[in-house]
């Protein structure tokens, strides 16, 4: 099947300059509030950007305002999850992709470490057991 990009579209005249919708700044002030909460009480916050009334360009503007920091990470479970620390330490962009690389959710996480990067406690005992089994198998040889 032809992709939508294959349809020839001709734009007449110069396109108008993108409007400034101004919906990024309120999110930034929500982030500021969440960061203050993290500093004061250590309480992490997650913000669902999918629930924001963004117009075209608003998300890009927010990302430009947040910038990028030192850490990037990816988690490969049920599709890829891209995690990027912003220029503001403790503010993380978490983009969840499905197995077809389409975005299923976009969150901002205000925490010292994003939840998804931590090893789930229940997995630790499983891992310990697996490691012991392997050691035992190696010693038996």
């Amino acid at each position: 099947m032809a992709s939508i990009g294959d349809i020839p579209v001709q734009v007449e005249g110069a396109p108008a300059a993108p409007a400034e919708y101004g919906n990024a700044l309120p999110v930034l002030s929500e982030v500021r509030h969440a960061l203050a909460q993290l500093v004061d009480g250590g309480e992490p916050t997650q913000i669902d950007l999918g629930a924001m009334p963004f117009g075209p360009g608003d998300e890009d503007r927010l990302m430009a305002l947040l910038g990028s920091g030192e850490v990037t990470a990816s988690v490969n479970a049920l599709g890829l999850t891209r995690i990027q620390e912003t220029a503001y330490r403790g503010v993380w962009i978490v983009e969840y992709l499905n197995t077809d690389d389409q975005r299923v959710a976009l969150h901002l996480e205000i925490a010292t470490v994003p939840q998804l990067l931590r090893s789930p406690p229940a997995d630790l005992s499983d891992a310990l057991a697996a490691l012991e089994t392997q050691l035992a198998a190696a010693e038996a040889k």
Binding site: Q46, D48, G50, A51, V75, A77, L78, G79, T81, Y96, V104, A105, H107, Q115, L116, P120, A122, D123
Partner: peptide, 16 residues
């Protein structure tokens, strides 16, 4: 074969 991390991600997307 969905891991716990995968499940957590699934739940985050489901909340959305």
């Amino acid at each position: 074969g969905v891991s716990r991390r995968g499940f957590l991600k699934f739940c985050a997307a489901t909340a959305s």
